[in-house]
């Protein structure tokens, strides 16, 4: 299954801007786990997830072709 991941801020440094092929991934919790296994540095950063431009507040199903954005908070002013 292919999903497109768009990363922002520090997360882009860690995983890069990329289209990822991920097998057997059903939801955002599983995505978080797979990403933190692949990129252990992500364990120590909090970030929000948006699917197809909608921010999600709970575990949400991911479908083929979805665009998943990983959004860390910024504090600078």
């Amino acid at each position: 299954m292919e999903i497109k991941i768009i990363a922002f801020g520090q997360i882009a440094d860690i995983i890069g801007n990329s289209i990822m092929s991920i097998n057997e991934i059903k939801d955002t919790e599983e995505l978080r786990k797979k990403l933190s296994n692949a990129f252990p540095q992500l364990n120590e950063i909090s970030y929000g997830i948006a699917i197809n431009k909608k921010n999600i507040n709970k575990n949400t199903e991911i479908n083929m072709g979805d665009i998943v954005a990983l959004l860390p908070p910024f504090s600078g002013g």
């Binding site: 801020g9 520090q10 120590e44 950063i45 909090s46 908070p73 910024f74 504090s75 600078g76």
Partner: peptide, 16 residues
């Protein structure tokens, strides 16, 4: 808070 319910852990997010 609907976007980021709680502040990140200290030192995990870069400042300017």
């Amino acid at each position: 808070r609907d976007l980021f319910p709680e502040p990140p852990v200290e030192n995990t997010i870069l400042s300017c």
